[in-house]
Design a protein around this nucleic acid. Sequence first.
DNA 1: AAACGACAAATCTTCGAAATAATCTTGACA
DNA 2: TGTCAAGATTATTTCGAAGATTTGTCGTTT
Lengths: 228, 228
Amino acid sequence: MPRARTSNPTRSDVILGQIRVDILNGRLAPGSRLGFADLGERYAVSAGVLREVLTRLVEQGLAESEAQFGFRVVDVSIERLIQLTDARVAIETLVTRQAIAAGDIAWEADVVAKHHALARIGDSMFSEGITEEWLTAHEAFHASILSGCKNAYLIEIALRLRSISEVYRCWSRPEHTRTHRDVASEHREIMAAAIGRDADRAVELTEAHIRLTTELLISGRTAELSSP
Amino acid sequence: MPRARTSNPTRSDVILGQIRVDILNGRLAPGSRLGFADLGERYAVSAGVLREVLTRLVEQGLAESEAQFGFRVVDVSIERLIQLTDARVAIETLVTRQAIAAGDIAWEADVVAKHHALARIGDSMFSEGITEEWLTAHEAFHASILSGCKNAYLIEIALRLRSISEVYRCWSRPEHTRTHRDVASEHREIMAAAIGRDADRAVELTEAHIRLTTELLISGRTAELSSP
DNA sequence: AAACGACAAATCTTCGAAATAATCTTGACA
DNA sequence: TGTCAAGATTATTTCGAAGATTTGTCGTTT
């Protein structure tokens, strides 16, 4: 739910974005406490705006709070990850189906454009792991597919779940998520199915895409736990 | 998304609840501005806590905000209501199906109990319109059915959408939503289908229940507009 | 030795004023 | 007469300190 008027973003908006990125990248570890003193020094803001930012983070599902006890980064667990994955599969397949049914030519063009940008960034990124730039393009590509759906509520829900799942990205070692799969061709096939109006195939590919990420995340995590 | 520790609710929590109820009941009209001066006097709080409360309202989908322009109650329109209804049908049928598949005996007992309470309140409420008490029981009944689903994310989404749709309740004249339907038997049938583990029928009834409410809302609204 | 109660430290929560930005009014100019 | 610009007004946003609550620790009691 971004603010409508982008001309003059509030200080809160800026800080919210910074903390958000830091949570999603793991610089603020899952489950760790978000004390006002620490954060106030880290981002150079007062307790007042911090309180607002943390509150928004809670409503977005990226933080938790207890009254009179402060805030902490949303905690992670395999149980939650599995539930989150199921929810994402259910919602995103639903939205994808509606997008393919309702998307017009402008939608197709947008999907193709976003995929192209993602593919080019992926090419020039051979072995250097996942960059900030790639993450943005990746998000934009999937968002473009969902945007074909005419229901703003469902799209918002799908994006929200996707955002929460980003917290788990910093969970496993990078090599696990990169080496054993061909993400590029997965994206190419999803795009082809979408603009080819093959809803069943697109849904099938999307589900596989989401579930594979989760499985690699879990296996990477367990491997890390058993052999630190 | 209630706070975990209920022992000492924060002042923000209290005010949030009050404003929330006032929005859902239409005492704060849809689309109306939420100025800090007015609200500060109305609820006897400072601008600081108001700011936090309004922020949470935005994230919950009950208010909107523009930077440097303040907050307003979420605006309503037939277009939005239709989208919201579609989203609710999609999500709630999904959750209902999972609840019927996964719910245990304790879940069944809870559904029966909540339905009983709702039915008794409905009986003792012949023609006096909808009371606050009935609304609470109504919400609890539907929530109990959804609670059978093991996926916390999906349940939260369903409840969130249900909360947003409450804003539309104050849209039409009371008589339209009461006279031309038998809500009690709709609920009874939904309960029977749920604990009878008849997923298809429960989904069918739930969808009809949601869509009928929307249709009566829209027809009541258009009638009101054409003959004020 | 364990349990209970009170004190102290730290933290979150609230407030009211100052700083900042946007809108509205007023006046002048083309 | 219509348009534009600048000042005045109103409202939002931010800040730092005071108030309230919880947690941890220490001493006493059973």
